[in-house]
Design a protein around this nucleic acid. Structure first.
Lengths: 333, 333
DNA sequence: ATCGCCTTTGCAAGCGTGTGCAAATGCTGC
DNA sequence: GCAGCATTTGCACACGCTTGCAAAGGCGAT
């Protein structure tokens, strides 16, 4: 019981009393159609409920208008914020977003990405740490343009968007010092993504230049629970740190909660904390966390802008700045 | 400088020394190909890096494999969790997710949805409150199947997934009573979505049956800030409530923070709080919020299952149960 | 060897669109 | 009225794929 569903340009043409080409041209910006013909076509199209079939158009033009977003941990505050911004900007640019979720690495990642290739996506925006080099190469080999967000792949013909993580790391040292902290620590996850590592290096090396050692502790995945575990580890040391830089706001939230509940630490009086990402929860009163803001909107803007730029075979790099957002989790300010 | 990008079935056929039909059939499950031919085709396809063009396949078969997800407030914990689950299940079902973001109601909603129609999406899953009836009708008229999550449209040929919001609302009353609360309040947003309203009705009517009045306060959008405002309104009343049901976890978080900071209220000793959604933050130690869990996985499962079911012209309804998750924001338990 | 049946294969039509090309049309200036 | 030009229009092919149909091939039973 297949039902007749979509209207084709043929039917519109027939109803409008013109050729099918006229219909096609009416819906192709910049094509040559007389005002009168266009009017009649539009009238017929509206009456029939005609919508250009982008599958067919993509087939002809060899450009689908589809952009593939490869994301892991979609349900995380930072990721979902970025995703939201990206889809909005893509829509405004007349593109359409195809979402590939790379959680659950049961091979479905590879499967889903291939799926995107089959739909001839024009580009992929990868904001997941997971997909390895072989997968990005798969995209490139199939002529997709590639945007890599906070990754360190070096592939020709791609756009790499990174932050000044290193500078952020070193900048927060001076903030801790001004607050009178002397025993610094860096709380990191075991996910050694380049941006996390760079934050740590910037922090550690700036501290060393000022004659301070940094205790580094790493555990688990970059989430709330990891922050709790890291707090237990760091706060049971005989030399308890008094200034902790958490690689991520989520980590920081877990850290602060456990520091208060299990160790009765008063923040920022006895312990100063900083995070990274500026997720919405960082502004919640329970945390009021000093942190670096991911320039989510700029990232999205750059990515989408590059999609419309002329392709080239260089590596295009953009480094964006993460603003320091002062809140009360560090003394002074 | 257009580059030759994708491999077509023709080239594979040529290299394998078979006809193009053979290639097509090799990649069509259930088609009749001899093992030997299949082997040779696969070999050639791998060597050349061939991927079936789904634009063309969709054109022929008149089924695109694309499912359109219409979402607003993607960056919200509950929504992003649902989105993540849905994309995973869709991928496992061999479908591909197209994301339409309906924030920023500058007409881009309509534009984006039309975009999905142009790609001949097989179905749309709507988890946004925003798109009005006319838009859902647009989808239906174009032969898309429609899944409506927590909405109250009544359209033929759709699947409606709802929760037992009303029961949840009445169930939480007994929890408050057992904790000794007598002055109940319902903190709601001004977004009068059916599920929010049903929670409130269940709460209010159950309380009335037990001889208790409920103070209802509404403000703004369903977020953290609204919770703060609602706390200020409710806690400055001469009869300060001692049991507050927040329509949403986000509301509850804002409520609790402001209750503690600005009114020095001790939870749950002086004030019991409950929420709805069971977002990740509800489990954070600062809140430890008693709440009802959105059955995210079940919702996704039902939606995807229905997509594979035989179409019918009935309204198909599924009501799922929201489990009560006991935490320490209510005394006793 | 012949027949009937089942599996495999190639041919060709068709899906809905874009676009080069040539023909047709309208308009301007003589 | 006609030449010259710019604009508009229709024809027909192409895009990459699926699939009905008929021909071809394989194989056992007669």
């Amino acid at each position: 019981m297949t039902v007749k569903l979509y209207i084709s340009a043929n039917e519109v043409a027939e109803r409008a009393g013109v050729s099918r080409s006229a219909v096609s041209r009416t819906f192709t910006p910049g094509a040559s159609v007389s005002p009168e013909t266009r009017r009649r076509v539009m009238e017929a199209a509206d009456a029939l409920g005609y919508h250009v079939n982008h599958l067919a158009r993509g087939l002809m033009r060899n450009e689908s208008g589809i952009v593939c977003l490869v994301v892991s941990e979609v349900a995380t505050p930072y990721r979902s914020a970025l995703l939201s911004m990206l889809t909005q900007k893509l829509q405004n640019a007349g593109k359409v977003a195809m979402l590939v979720n790379t959680d659950r690495s049961d091979g479905s990642v590879d499967r889903a990405l291939k799926q995107a290739i089959r739909y001839r996506a024009e580009a992929s925006i990868i904001m997941s740490g997971l997909p390895d080099k072989s997968i990005t190469q798969l995209c490139l080999k199939n002529g997709q343009r590639l945007v890599l967000i906070n990754r360190d792949d070096d592939q020709v013909g791609t756009l790499r968007i990174n932050l000044d993580d290193y500078e952020a790391g070193s900048k927060i040292v001076t903030a801790f010092l001004r607050a009178g902290c002397r025993r610094l620590a860096f709380a990191n996850s075991e996910a050694g993504t380049p941006s996390l590592m760079a934050r740590g290096r910037g922090f550690i090396e700036a501290a060393k230049r000022l004659g301070l050692d940094v205790v580094v502790e790493r555990y688990g995945w970059t989430g709330y629970e990891a922050g709790q575990v890291l707090a237990r580890r760091l706060l049971t040391r005989e030399e308890r740190p008094d200034g902790v830089f958490c690689a991520t706001d989520l980590l920081a939230c877990g850290f602060m909660d456990t520091a208060r509940r299990e160790f009765s630490v008063v923040i920022p009086k006895q312990l100063c904390v900083a995070g990274f990402d500026n997720i919405e929860q960082a502004a919640w009163q329970s945390y009021d966390l000093t942190t670096f803001a991911q320039p989510v909107e700029d990232i999205a803007t750059e990515a989408v802008r590059w999609l419309d730029a002329v392709p080239s075979h260089d590596i295009h790099r953009v480094q964006l700045h993460a603003d320091l957002v002062w809140r009360s989790s560090i003394r002074g300010g």
